[in-house]
Write a protein that binds this DNA or RNA. Structure first.
Lengths: 174, 174
DNA sequence: CTTAAATTTCAGATTAAACAGAAATGAGAG
DNA sequence: CTCTCATTTCTGTTTAATCTGAAATTTAAG
């Protein structure tokens, strides 16, 4: 079993990018592999195709499952686990955004709220500093609210909105 | 010289988050420190406040400057370099997004274009796989185009759009 | 031109994360 | 109940990135 050149290129690139997206190389590679695979794969097949340790595949798949990006399935008369990825790119995007919001935006939001309260009582702190913390808090709050609402919009509508791009400005300004 | 408790908390948190945002702890801490500082700071002041090596500050500031997040200034009769951060949060956001687009989205886009072309000629590759690559390419292209257009929208308009949130759906559907 | 202050470069040390392989656990077949 | 196949857990190793401190370079003042 061997990956085709194009698939290999895709998987390797995805692995590299994964490290920038808050996960590690193997996790991202497995996700890419499962996304591209026309059928669910077993852990031992993944070991073969990516040349990584069995234990590494186990841990990585667990992580992907916890994100909701990968589901386990079974074949009749075969007790081994098979895995498949979400195949809809918009769905993938939604799940990843949700994860990032939870791991990055939410903790930052609570830190900023705490800081904004605490700094208000600090006599040694310059007013400019206090204002900057408030500004950042407001920005992250706005972003966070927006995020949450965007999550609810159905894919087809989201596509339309994105296609509009900057034309949205005209509509809003009216 | 010492940071106030709230400022320290902010800086430390920002440092941790920085690692998830494609940069390292020190770079993010310095950016946070300069953002909160009511006046430009010298490298040696940053060394004091953050307890990091002078050389580390030098390298980190260089990185921040290359992103356009930090500018160098000078004081009359003082040949030491002073540094200050962009202070407008929306401006900060814009610059960071632009960096991320260049370092993540663009390389992925060109990888996907190459893969989409190459995979078309692969007889060994399943049609489903080919379609998935095309789908991902289309998604990233849409996202990339949208990104670029959003960059051009002035802050005040952007704020209005984000405040609208999901209400945008109603407007678009008309 | 010399000197001293400021900054940058670079090589090695430190640290944290990712990974492999062995051992342990679990689950179904007979 | 026992045996075998499959999976997970755990520990030690490897790898990569970050950071430090010393040396080199730059810059301006005298």
């Amino acid at each position: 079993m061997k990956l085709s050149p194009a698939v290999e290129k895709y998987v390797l690139h995805w692995g590299e990018m994964g490290t920038r997206w808050g996960t590690n190389r193997t996790v991202a590679q497995i996700q890419a592999l499962l996304y591209l695979s026309p059928r669910p794969l077993r852990a031992d097949e993944i070991v073969d195709l990516l040349s990584v340790a069995r234990s590494n595949v186990s841990t990585s798949i667990r992580e992907l499952q916890s994100y909701g990006l990968v589901k386990m399935t079974h074949m009749l008369g075969d007790r081994r686990d098979y895995f498949e990825s979400l195949s809809d790119v918009w769905e993938l995007f939604r799940v990843i955004m949700e994860q990032r919001k939870q791991r990055e935006l939410n903790p930052t939001l609570s830190m900023l709220r705490t800081c904004a309260i605490e700094v208000a009582d600090e006599e040694e702190t310059d007013e400019i500093t206090k204002q900057r913390i408030r500004n950042m808090l407001q920005f992250v709050e706005t972003t966070s609210d927006w995020y949450e609402q965007i999550q609810e919009i159905p894919t087809s509508t989201l596509q339309k909105i994105m296609k509009l791009g900057a034309k949205i400005t005209g509509i809003v300004e009216k």
